[in-house]
């Protein structure tokens, strides 16, 4: 690789130990179906980058949230563009993870010794659903509010602990400022942190265990 990289690698020493992962043999007969996971990673990275940008203008407050979205759409340079990319990447992330899950399921790649990687992948899918759900509230418009009202009310149908769960999720009795800031925190800190750890372990296991031979 380039001279700058070699200089950095002179301090880090990552190239040599990673060679056998980066230049590993892959089984013959792989198709584009084996790129779905990589495509999901691409959308995850796009979401991460555009999310970093959006967080500079978004204000997670009951009185300011909606106005800050309007400002983002109308006044901020390319605000509409960055927000649209974030929105569409979120849709495509879910689609591609689902397609990837189907591919893994169809090619029976969840079997031992890859069973833990299947579990990690499913957890990633759950966290990406959670990201979608928490991100949906943030525009703080009618659709966002009522979707969250309905979504969090579902927790209340759990027998016995329903109301406790609702309070826990909403941070109060109903969907309010407490819910908004809670969802914002989960959306921009907890879930990306959790997903990054899960994705790292996902790829680590892929490297260690290799790609399963197609059926």
């Amino acid at each position: 690789m380039g001279r700058v990289f070699d200089w950095i690698d002179g301090k880090f020493h990552v190239k040599a130990p990673h060679k056998r992962f980066l230049q590993r043999r892959i089984p013959p007969g792989l198709s584009y179906m084996y790129c779905l996971g990589g495509a999901s990673l691409f959308f995850y990275l796009v979401l991460f980058a555009t999310g970093l940008l959006l967080s500079m203008y978004y204000i997670p407050s009951e009185t300011e949230a909606y106005d800050s979205i309007l400002r983002l759409q109308r006044e901020v340079n390319l605000g509409w563009f960055i927000r649209a990319i974030h929105k569409w990447s979120a849709t495509f992330l879910i689609l591609f993870i689902l397609a990837h899950t189907l591919r893994v399921f169809y090619s029976k790649a969840y079997r031992s010794p890859k069973e833990l990687n299947w579990v990690v992948g499913c957890l990633t899918l759950v966290l990406s659903f959670a990201s979608g759900f928490t991100g949906y509230l943030l525009p703080w418009d009618q659709k966002a509010y009522w979707a969250t009202e309905v979504g969090t009310s579902m927790a209340g149908t759990v027998p016995g602990v329903g109301q406790f769960l609702i309070n826990f999720v909403r941070g109060g009795f109903d969907v309010s400022q407490a819910t908004l800031i809670r969802f914002y925190s989960i959306h921009v800190l907890w879930l990306p942190a959790g997903m990054s750890i899960l994705l790292w372990s996902h790829f680590h296991m892929v490297k260690r265990q290799g790609i399963k031979k197609p059926l």
Binding site: N167, F168, R170, G171, G172, F173, A178
Partner: peptide, 10 residues
């Protein structure tokens, strides 16, 4: 810490 401190009894 995460659980709301006072859920107002209406």
């Amino acid at each position: 810490f995460i659980y709301p401190a006072s859920v107002k009894q209406r």
